[in-house]
Design a protein around this nucleic acid. Sequence first.
DNA 1: CTACAACTTCGAGTCGACTCTAAGTCAAGC
DNA 2: GCTTGACTTAGAGTCGACTCGAAGTTGTAG
Lengths: 134, 134
Amino acid sequence: MITHPDLLTIQQAAEQTGLSEHTLRYYERVGLLLPVDRAPNGHRRYAPDHLRLLQFLIKLRATGMPIEQMKEYAALIRAGEGNEGERLRLLLDHKQLVLARIQVLLDSLAVIDRKIESYQELHACINDDSVQAE
Amino acid sequence: MITHPDLLTIQQAAEQTGLSEHTLRYYERVGLLLPVDRAPNGHRRYAPDHLRLLQFLIKLRATGMPIEQMKEYAALIRAGEGNEGERLRLLLDHKQLVLARIQVLLDSLAVIDRKIESYQELHACINDDSVQAE
DNA sequence: CTACAACTTCGAGTCGACTCTAAGTCAAGC
DNA sequence: GCTTGACTTAGAGTCGACTCGAAGTTGTAG
């Protein structure tokens, strides 16, 4: 196969991003990505630009952004320059949500930690008992 | 209705826990909770013990523990004393997972933050331009 | 006696995000 | 010419965790 520099097959794109080929096609299907370039035989060819966007979208996913909102962000990027304010707003809003979610995680974890400590104390007591019993 | 002290109807339990009545019944159905006590007419009556367990299970849920694993934990509690070591292990393992997930969130958020900053700089530049233009 | 509200059950439906399947195309190697 | 493997498509299936709906029962208020 003639491998054009910088143009990746779907397999290579999957490797690079950690997404499955299925998922890459799915993202395109649902309109998260614009139709990807094609080789003469119809096969997808991912350009570095695509990959960079994908890598960033993956970070949005990792922070729990729903696909619908990722679509909004991707659409803003596609629309070109001039809407950086909107992009900024979207990202800032999302950041607040993520921080809030982390806070919930930490708060809940604190409760769980108290339970953990109580079990650990119990464990220590049992050890004490057995020491005293000996 | 004769409201026995401390025994809550499903509606009251839903209020107290923030879960829906549907969800309370669902948790019981899937075996997360033991069959709840019933009033003579067959209606559920939640005892303080139930409520306390629920409150804790809700913290586990909030930290993303799947229902299957919550069932394991609830089963250990039901089994009575003597398995505190297992409970401790389960909670400690879960805690590690949660901490790891928080770390992923923070790492991804750091990437998003860099993007946010770049948009903010851009924004600042535009402001500079307009100031200079005046 | 009737209306109403609060429950009951069980099964079906929803949602988001994949994930997989089947059937087809195409280029390269033997 | 045939097989193999990497791709293509559209549509169906899965999974977890609810969420809802329909039909029935019970107990109280008017």
